[in-house]
């Protein structure tokens, strides 16, 4: 084979060689969606946490660790959402996997103080459910864009364009959310939820959150806490309380019986759902619509 022919073959194959997608493993359904939006065809995302599963109860299996060892980037929520993260990091250290932790790109808010006295769990003091603030998702979008560019510099323009397009969609979502919530009087902006996951949403839109459980779904409320919550729901005249897609709503149903509040529907608190709620934008629209319809 002549050198000239070899060069021509190399040039001809170059686009396919560079088009080999970045292999990404995601420990968050929200991060999976952001990665697909930013990465497009240049990124192949393996979902370690699947939509509809409870990430608070997840522990990596040997099969998961093997899968994670074979990728270039691991996406994690951080802020204590994955208590196993340090162990996982040391398990796959030798494979050279890059960890991108979204919590480092956002300004965290603190958990409600009472949660830390009510139970023991492995979370940090920060609320790890950062994705309920659209502004945080915009920040993480830029973080993933930069992480992908670092691994695949040839894809820079694609990643930049994809990130801009997704940011535009997020801006439309943010305005839509503001307009939807504007019909709710401030006095009715009270979210009684299964667990304390909507702190960022509450901060952005002036809600007060009254969770049955703490910051994790594994936190169990004391009977005294449930009694206090029932009294508070009555005294504030809360119209509706909300279940979550990964929870058994039995306790909430009992509270509705005692308080006279309605069961307002199901919120996606710990990640994406399926169907229309299978994307970040779809999930947020579903949550906002459910909240407005129940509290209006």
């Amino acid at each position: 084979m002549s050198p000239l022919f070899s060069v021509l073959i190399f040039i001809g194959l170059a686009p396919w060689v560079s088009a080999e997608p970045i292999k990404v493993a995601s420990l968050s359904t929200v991060l999976s969606d952001i990665a697909r939006n930013v990465g497009g065809d240049r990124v192949e995302v393996s979902e370690i946490i699947k939509p509809g599963s409870d990430p608070h109860l997840y522990e990596p299996t040997p099969g998961d660790i093997k899968k994670i060892s074979s990728v270039q980037i691991v996406l994690a929520s951080g802020l204590g959402f994955e208590p196993y993260l340090d162990k996982l990091r040391s398990s796959v250290e030798k494979s050279g996997v890059e960890f991108v932790v979204a919590g480092s790109a956002v300004k965290p808010i603190a958990c409600a103080e009472e949660d830390h006295h009510d139970h023991s769990h492995s979370h940090d003091a920060a609320d790890p459910h950062w994705w309920h603030s659209i502004a945080n998702v915009e920040a993480v979008t830029l973080q993933l864009r930069d992480a992908f560019i670092a691994v695949d510099p040839d894809g820079r323009s694609d990643f930049q364009a994809n990130a801009r397009a997704f940011e535009d969609k997020l801006k439309v979502l943010a305005k839509w959310t503001r307009l939807q919530l504007a019909v709710l009087p401030k006095s009715q902006r009270i979210l009684v939820t299964s667990h304390d996951a909507l702190g960022y949403f509450a901060r952005d839109y002036g809600f007060q959150v009254l969770p049955v459980q703490g910051i994790s779904t594994s936190d169990q409320p004391s009977s005294q806490k449930v009694r206090n919550l029932i009294q508070e729901i009555k005294s504030l005249g809360v119209k509706a309380i909300f279940a979550e897609n990964i929870e058994n709503p039995k306790v909430l149903q009992q509270i509705t019986v005692e308080t006279g509040a309605n069961l307002g529907g199901t919120l996606y608190a710990d990640g994406l759902g399926i169907g229309d709620a299978g994307t970040y934008i779809g999930m947020m629209r579903s949550n906002v619509t459910t909240i407005v319809e129940a509290l209006q």
């Binding site: 409600a112 401030k186 006095s187 007060q208 959150v209 009254l210 206090n228 508070e232 005294s235 504030l236």
Partner: peptide
């Protein structure tokens, strides 16, 4: 007794 409203639940 009337429940002491939580710190987050002060009546406006």
């Amino acid at each position: 007794r009337p429940v002491g409203v939580l710190s987050s639940g002060k009546l406006p």
